[in-house]
Design a protein around this nucleic acid. Sequence first.
RNA 1: GUCCCCAUCGUCCAGAGGCCCAGGACGCGGCCCUUUCAAGGCCGAAACACGGGUUCGAAUCCCGUUGGGGACGCCA
Length: 485
Amino acid sequence: MAPRVRFAPSPTGYLHVGGARTALFNWLFARRHGGVMVLRIEDTDVERSSDEMVTGILDGLRWLGIDWDEGPEVGGGHGPYFQSERLDRYRATAERLVAEGHAYYCYCTPEQLNQKREQAQARGEGWTYDRACRDLPDEEIARREGERQPRAIRFKVPDGQTEFTDLVRGRIVFDHANLEDFVVLRSDSHPTYHLSVVVDDVDMAITHVVRGEDHISNTPKQVLLYGALGQPTPAFAHVPLILGPDKKRLSKRHGATSVMEYERIGYLPEAMFNFLALLGWSPGDDRELMTRDELVAAFSLEGISGGNAVFNPEKLDWFNHQHLLRLSDDELLDRLEPRLAAAGLWQHTFRGAERAWFFKVVDQLRPRCKKLPEFVEQGRPFFGEPDAYDPDAVAKRLGEPGLADHMRALAAAYAGCAFDEATLEQVLRQVAESRGVKAGVLIHATRIAMTGRMVSPGLFEMLSLLGKDRVERRIERLVTFLEEK
RNA sequence: GUCCCCAUCGUCCAGAGGCCCAGGACGCGGCCCUUUCAAGGCCGAAACACGGGUUCGAAUCCCGUUGGGGACGCCA
């Protein structure tokens, strides 16, 4: 049977890297086995959920290339896929549990419970619900119902143990003594997570629940619910968490955690995808740089490691650089256009007459850029005008006596020569020799003339790409600058 | 406090009893290339948390300790 998995985010925040990786593992598993990827929005927390967050999450998934077969915007035969549209299902199920003796009405108020909890904590003890309402006499219940007293519905946890097999960790056993009679339906008749997740996973015929390790301790409660509802339990796979450098759960204070933030900073989705996939999982061999298809082909839940993983930004940068290096010219062009346009450096001719030239420039930039914005900055001398001369560059490289004259001589020589790299280099070296200076003096000065900076792609490649007019103009400008200095 | 999970280089992983005085990658150091900066190539430093078992033999299995993480809500 084809597996059915789901990613079920709560729209109380943007898609963060931890959630993205969970979604990614689910997706890889579904695609690997020809299964179905379901996207479900868990918006039962009315207070904190918002539509804006829903779109944000969908955008994040789409950016990463994680698509879904059933869910928002695509529909499917097991919907609705928003929990807020399924409230009747949860209520009916909760009442059914009560009717069948698996759950009971609890009239304790949140205030009372908080008080008891705080008292216990003050004593340094944990607190679990004291089952005050578990065995209320029928008349008592009838009376309170008659008075329409607000009440929640709690699951009646039986004595014993619950065990389940986790696909990444093996057998896990919980003693019911450590489980409390948890609420399944709140007094406002909204379901809690435990109920809604089980009802939905049953309704949506989910076969494999792949989620964060923080859900392990919730699992026995849900297994109990499956049992009470007479449903088989799905397979579980709890994936490790992503940690910050301080080994604490990754959060805002560690820097960017929103997936779309990485898009904004200039990371490639394929790099992010590759990096995230390898964070806590490996194909079993030494491969690291992988395409989406290779990852799908190699994926297995067994390859997920048990320990938490620290998010390593340097390695993400490396992945990004490697994927940048492997992008086709056209793909790179597509991703660069909006950024160049935003910087006022885009010409429509880059897709037409100057297309080949554009790609040559980009080839020079590629090995030097780890993120997209660097193409804009380093490409500025090619696509626009050079920056103002960097004071450090001026101080370090323009101090040679007679430099203005040397540069004038270079300009004169360049005026009459072919503009290929080899000739450009040969001519420059000849000028340097005839004037009795080291070639480096002219090279560095010319680089500053072209870019305003001390670092750039190879000088002669650059000169050739810039063309005679621009090279002459920029050398003249430097000469003027030197003479006025 | 109770319960659960985890434990190989700084970091991410490989390793499913002998192939391991532990392999790859990022990062770091050095060298080469070189007009700068990268890229690239080569070399190097760097780990089986600790203690008991089991076994002819343990990074690999078991127990304990320690350490880290997670969960204990009418949040998801």
